[in-house]
Amino acid sequence: MIFMLCGTSDARELAVQIKAQGYSVLTSVVTDSAAGSLREAGLDVRVGRLTADEMAAYLKENQVQAVVDASHPFAEEAHRNAMAAAEQAAVPYIRYERESLTFDGQPLIQYADDYAEAAEMAAAKGGVVMLTTGSKTLQVFTERLLGLPNVTLIARMLPRLDNMEKCEALGLPQKHIVAMQGPFSKALNSALYDQFGVTLMITKESGKVGSVDEKLEAALEMGIETIIIGRPKLAYGHVFSRFDEISDTLKEMLK
């Protein structure tokens, strides 16, 4: 059995391909909403977070032959847990990582190493800041930006109850929340920037599949500055960005 950490559209496509090659595949996601599309594709799914120790026990109990980590590029905790679990269970770990997008020579784009640095850069710039990095790290930005006289913070996130409760707890006004399910087209991104008068957009370098290019193209055309937060730098070992590389590696490891 192949144990796959999923949760994105490209992870689902990879899981379907691996299953089509004759492997037994068990996908793992955090939420029921993410599980739905996997089940629709005919994949077996388990739902819920696992610690490294819990995952290791699960791998041993289910006689898993390899772990394929195809979770989101910024799911750092999931990556670390999967690598540790695979080591404990003595099974191979393979990382599928989306190709990065590069925007060299763009004067409107700056890079930050992490969320805290991005928040500091935004505080220095001021203006109407649209945050498109989700709710998990929202507090990093509200603590630094809310209350500044020259900053208006607009947060875009999934329309979930827990997200709205978090916004309320952090003091983010309802009128500054965009609760929508992506992916977002370039036209919709442009409309949102225009609606709120955005002068600075903050995003993560999630890759093309993560719709980063639509956000950036819209922002660049409108002359809006952008801060891109770089991916976590982890020592994955076996890491590939193409489906065929994953398939070839599995064949080699499990032959």
Rank of each mutant, 00 (worst) to 15 (best):
I2A: 02
F3K: 15
G7D: 01
T8E: 11
L14Y: 02
L14I: 01
L14P: 00
G22D: 09
S28Y: 06
S28V: 07
D32Y: 08
V47C: 01
T51R: 12
D53K: 11
Y58D: 11
Q63V: 13
S71Y: 14
P73M: 05
E77V: 13
N81E: 01
A82K: 05
I94Q: 05
Y96C: 05
R98F: 00
D104M: 08
G105M: 13
Q106Y: 13
P107Y: 09
L108H: 00
A116C: 00
A122G: 10
K125T: 13
G126Y: 02
G126R: 02
G127V: 04
K136C: 01
T137V: 10
L138A: 12
V140W: 04
E143G: 05
L146I: 04
L146A: 04
G147N: 01
G147R: 01
T152I: 00
L161K: 15
N163Y: 11
C167Y: 08
E168G: 11
A169S: 11
P173H: 04
Q174C: 06
K175T: 14
H176R: 13
L192R: 09
F196S: 00
T199A: 00
T199K: 00
I202F: 04
E205F: 05
E205W: 05
G207H: 11
S211Q: 07
S211Y: 01
D213E: 14
G223I: 07
E225H: 05
I227R: 01
K233Q: 12
H238M: 14
F243I: 11
E245H: 11
D248Y: 06
L250M: 04
E252L: 10
